[in-house]
């Protein structure tokens, strides 16, 4: 079942100014309950614009966004409900921290939802756990934390609203490999524990392969490719044609194919590649 459906979305950026740039040229896409979707595309492909439509921050020139089958733009109330049902976490979210304690900052969203104090407290404690930090952090100032910790707190602030869909715009940007892996694990765990849909943007194809169930590729404001990770990554050449990086293992496979080795489907994980190479060697050995 789809949680959010985007119907033929058209949105022109900064209309009328000399710096006009077509951002979305009729995008239709469904996001299903419980899946992790990765949104990829080069800078300026319209990814961020699409994300900001999913929770109604932007209003399309034409087309519609449906949350659980109902247009989010129907009324002021439906729009506000959508804000809380679809949690959007921007790029470098740690830059939006402002409160004197981690607790207060995470509580900002739930407070805006006008929840009871007990419910707010429960949510703050739950969400700090989801992002892998201990409750000791709640009384600290967010500004005393390390970069990676700040980011987790900021994400907790969105999770605390208990959105049915969690959207993260480049959640791993600027993190080192360790911080990146931890964050990817967090996304996966959150999805498994809550069963909520997660949509995230990434430039790193290996990150995408590690957690996403499905991949959507945008190019110049249009939907270029979509499917499971396998389906999309097996079209490595097409991805490269769109100016996107392919996972490194995929590029090893593309090079191997060019060199005349037939290894079957294009693999993108170390394990898959290992198996495929060994299988091909066995076959070669048998001949």
């Amino acid at each position: 079942m789809s949680v959010i459906s985007v119907k033929n979305l058209i949105y022109g950026y900064s209309k009328g100014t000399p710096f006009e740039k077509g951002a979305l040229k009729g995008v239709s896409v469904d996001f299903r309950q419980g899946e992790i979707v990765a949104l990829i595309g080069h800078t300026g492909s319209g990814k961020s614009t699409l994300l900001q439509h999913l929770n109604g921050l932007l209003k399309p020139d034409s087309g519609d966004v449906l949350f659980e089958g109902k247009s989010i733009y129907e009324s002021k109330k439906s729009l506000r409900d959508c804000r809380f049902n679809v949690g959007l976490c921007f790029q470098y979210p740690e830059q939006q921290l402002f409160e004197s304690t981690v607790y207060k900052d995470i509580a900002f969203g739930p407070t805006n939802m006008k929840l009871s104090d007990d419910e707010i407290k429960k949510r703050v404690y739950d969400s700090i756990k989801y992002v892998g930090l201990s409750a000791d952090y709640l009384e600290k100032s967010p500004f005393d934390l390390s970069g990676g910790e700040k980011r987790r707190v900021a994400i907790a602030g969105v999770i605390a609203m208990e959105p049915k869909v969690l959207i993260l715009d480049e959640p791993t940007a600027g993190l080192d490999p360790l911080g990146k892996n931890n964050l990817l694990k967090l996304i996966k765990d959150y999805n498994e524990k809550t069963g909520n849909t997660v949509i995230f943007v990434s430039h790193n194809m290996d990150d995408v392969a590690a957690v996403a169930h499905r991949v959507i590729v945008l190019s110049d404001g249009e939907l270029a490719l979509q499917g499971t990770v396998d389906e999309v990554y097996s079209q490595g050449e097409k991805l490269a044609g769109l100016g996107l990086d392919v996972p490194e293992i995929t590029s090893v496979f593309i090079e191997l194919k060019k060199a005349g080795f037939d290894l079957g489907d294009t693999e993108y994980t170390i394990n898959g590649a290992k198996e495929a190479i060994i299988a091909s060697l066995m076959k070669g050995g048998a001949v």
Partner: peptide
């Protein structure tokens, strides 16, 4: 120490 290794090398190592 939490650093990654070039993927082609990692593949060779796995093999």
């Amino acid at each position: 120490i939490g650093l990654a290794v070039p993927k082609p090398l990692e593949l060779a190592e796995a093999l």
